[in-house]
Amino acid sequence: MSAQVPKARKITCIGFDWRAEVSLKETLALLRGKTREAWQYSDELTADVVVYETHNVLAQAMVRRSAAENTGRVFFPSSSEDDSVLTLRYPFGASRLVACLDSASLQLQGRVPATEQAEAPSLCQRLDDALRAPGTLAVSIRAGDQQGWLRLPERELHWSQPLGVDEIAGLLSGEVEVEALGPTEGAALRRLEAAARHPAPAEGLLWAIGIARSKGSLLPRLDIARPCRLRRWPDFGAIGRRSLDIRCASLLTQRELAPSHLAMMAGIPLGVLGNFLNACALVGVLEPGKALPAAAPAPQAHALPQESGLGSVLRRIRTALAIGQ
């Protein structure tokens, strides 16, 4: 009987530019065999260890959220006023990184890797369920003492005080109550209309919830084998961009594809792709394809073609502009 090989722990970084991500991947490769446990880089926000830029809003929200949920995830900030806190700053030094990873191993001891944890439905799933519940006219959203609501079908967001998307996303990093309101809750609807009058951009908020509050799981209503497509592009000018989201949007607006097929073509793990698809579903731009799931060709391991002449030109343009690496 062969010995079971322990799974590698996962580490990711948030809030740094792409150079930091590349540096972390390369340094991890160099440190193979030099740490207590095996480590691999992951794009998933649910990784066991998160290195974050202290001033990044999304990272701050994740830290607060993780503390509230007691996920056991380990966070290393890029800086801290407290000298006793282990920090990890780009460029990542090898000895510092080893110290942080070994410290994280001790903290994570006895805990199963993040991807194996059984978790309650994500905020993304609860919100999606509420938005799709039959007869829903509006969805009430409560975070602490702040109240908001989404009017359907327009998906107009109103909040109890004037706030931008980043501020609302910060509020929603903690515990959030979501409730679907139908025709029989007329009184509750009128109270909401009176209490939350300030309009706020909804697409950016829904997108942020899909990306950051999906717990790495594809919404149950989305099937990895069922083709889907985008009926329009999300407005990345308003909601902020990640290159992998743009890459996926390009493919899914040009052809309907099953998520499993898309993951192969885009070279993106399904766990990461799931956040993108969930965000598209919440925003309302994802629609089922016409092809039957059974007709979809099985993804092939060699789906990414060899670089062509045009591919080389595009890659060199990206390098020159330092985008989408």
Binding site: P227, W233, I246, R247, S250, A258
Partner: peptide, 24 residues
Amino acid sequence: VLLLLDALLYQIEAARLLADTPHA
């Protein structure tokens, strides 16, 4: 401006990739 170019390059790349991939 980089967002626009990033998207344009991915559009071109996706069209090339899909041209080499049979329809489902």
